[in-house]
Design a protein around this nucleic acid. Sequence first.
DNA 1: CAACTTCCATAACGGACGGTATATAATATA
DNA 2: TATATTATATACCGTCCGTTATGGAAGTTG
Lengths: 203, 203
Amino acid sequence: MEVETAPTTKGRPREFCVDKALVDALHIFWAKGYDGASMTDLTEAMGITKPSLYAAFGNKEALFHKALDLYEAEKLEYTRAALDQPTARKVAEYYLRGALDTHCGATDPKGCMGLLGTLACSPEADSIKADVVRRRASSHRALVERFERAKAEGDLPAQIDPEGLTSHMLAILQGITVQASAGASRAELERLVDTSLALWPGK
Amino acid sequence: MEVETAPTTKGRPREFCVDKALVDALHIFWAKGYDGASMTDLTEAMGITKPSLYAAFGNKEALFHKALDLYEAEKLEYTRAALDQPTARKVAEYYLRGALDTHCGATDPKGCMGLLGTLACSPEADSIKADVVRRRASSHRALVERFERAKAEGDLPAQIDPEGLTSHMLAILQGITVQASAGASRAELERLVDTSLALWPGK
DNA sequence: CAACTTCCATAACGGACGGTATATAATATA
DNA sequence: TATATTATATACCGTCCGTTATGGAAGTTG
């Protein structure tokens, strides 16, 4: 049993770039969701055949997890950077504006890949769902802690519930991605964010 | 060419109740989404065979639209009742608490059937998607008008953008249903709603 | 060169999908 | 009772799904 893909250079070299193929796969999953993306969709977008895909990535599910890793690392970087902002208000602003750029940009698919993953309901997608839920829980936790710190530092009012505020802000974020998927314009979503920030508590 | 199902009583009478079967179908679509619900899932839950289903409802897509009609009429009644509340704050409160009861109750499936419909990405589900988006747009419009009226009546501050506030509130609503689908507890979502209402502008 | 290893292309696998043809059972009408 | 009409039950259709077996092409190593 081999633990990893052997780093040998023997045999015929592969004719495609694994990293580029993964980027292509990510775009398909992002646009169509796990169930909606067929192997044919994927292989056509990646420019490779099915046996090549299986040799390089394992299977569809493994490919999705790898695409999700890439998505988190590249596209969700703003959610980590947001935590470093000096005040709770700036955290929220960074978060929501980042969501706007990421989920309603011109080049990438509209909406959130994770959201599609969570709501995919095929029986075999349960492992996908669990993965996304787990990742989301860790963002949630980090945000609660950040808002607790903000409360201690005085840039959130004392009566604010950090747990509730986190769920509230993530709900807005999810709503943004839902509306983006449904075809809302960037301008519309900017007014949404402006309103949410106008109602934000504290400084 | 017959325009409607003939109201005759000739021939063998059907052995199941169409209305009850539709309720069963609704629960399946609600829990699994359009693509996730297979004809086998549906017929088993409805207790009928496929030919009976096709004779009574046309096909899967027509069945979904009828189930969506029922869903809107019965489960989304609160969104209409909300508009009759005396102030913008009460409208929001009615809306969000109603969402809690409807999408995080004990008996019905968690989450929002419309949301699953919008995010279903199979090619043949485009008509489903368009239907849901259209229905949602009309709720949106009604809400904007209600908030404009509230502004005129003085229970919303002058600097509030009714369009943005509507998108904001619907985003929270969508976030609630997303989190409910993902397994959030009722208590968690109540804290979310409490926070959202604590931040609500005006009286 | 031959031997070996790895990748690519074709085509097929079993299974599930939405949808239906056919035959039989049950009722109303005449 | 005979006939027409409609519902049910079974079995099947073609298509697409994710996955894989097979044969040959392309490269490295001796």
